[in-house]
Amino acid sequence: MSNASTSPPASKGSAGGFFSSNPLLALILQRIFLGFILLLAISALLFIGIEVLPGDFAQAYLGQSATPEAIANIRKELGLDAPLLERYFGWLGGVLQGDFGTSWANKASVSEQIGKRLGNTLFLAFWAAVVSVPLAIGLGMIAVHYRNRFIDRLINVISLAAISLPEFFTGYLLILFFAVNWGIAIFPSTVFADMSFGDRLAAIALPCATLVLVVLAHMMRMTRAAILNIMSSAYIETAELKGLDAFRIIAKHAAPNAIAPIINVVALNLAYLVVGVVVVEVIFVYPGMGQYLVDAVTIRDMPVVQACGLVFAAVYIILNMLADVLGILANPRLRHPK
């Protein structure tokens, strides 16, 4: 990878000259800039969306004892009487400095809570990814090798069945068999701050398995389709006529050219592992972002909802941006210009 200091001097010395001599860097910077703009737009959308939602924290908080005066008091205390724009920019200013405000419900710092919760969610997502990504790509390659034969069909049917079952159902099935009937897994999957690493891993086995089953099929099928697409290329015939064995052809000659679509699907699914875990976390009583968000929505704890929404959006955008950048880097034409 070249960067500004090692690249040859720009032809004109201007920014335009710099970008034309580093088309790759220009493309990547452009992606990052776009991602940032997108995140800003989402923050506004989130804020407006929550504003127009029916329901009110004060009402929900006070319950039976809600008198107009009490509601007005709470609203004033939370600063809800200020104009919308003022509140938005106040909030945005805080966010840019890493301060997501305080929870209305328990007055705790949202940033601190999210720090812990996000850590847990990422821990779960990480291990689910470590299992599912190599498994999916490996299975995809095996399916290509045995295309339209029994093994290919078997892989397809099983992964399709796994994705077709709703994740709460998969989750309950796993609990029933592994935790209840056979007693070889732990339920609930709650983790605590002072747990050892091994205990943590044991605790997340079932939610991790559920997530793997959910994301596996999508990645596997895309890997299979993308590589199959490449397998009809002339350079695959060349590889075959060079007498290479089937696995080397798939792994060395087909896969590198199929990498861009595969990266994209992997990124989408990694994002899902972080953003889409709400249901799984609730089922397995796992203290991650999803559960935090669900709890906050029930009591209309808006700073928490906003913060969770923004973090989810950021994860989504960063992963997709990463996929874009990796996709660009995977293209030798861009990496090694003429």
């Binding site: 002339a234 060349t238 000659h253 590198p256 030798p332 034409r333």
Partner: peptide, 8 residues
């Protein structure tokens, strides 16, 4: 042009 693998 088509028979060489563009990735290597």
């Amino acid at each position: 042009a088509a028979a060489f693998n563009p990735a290597h």
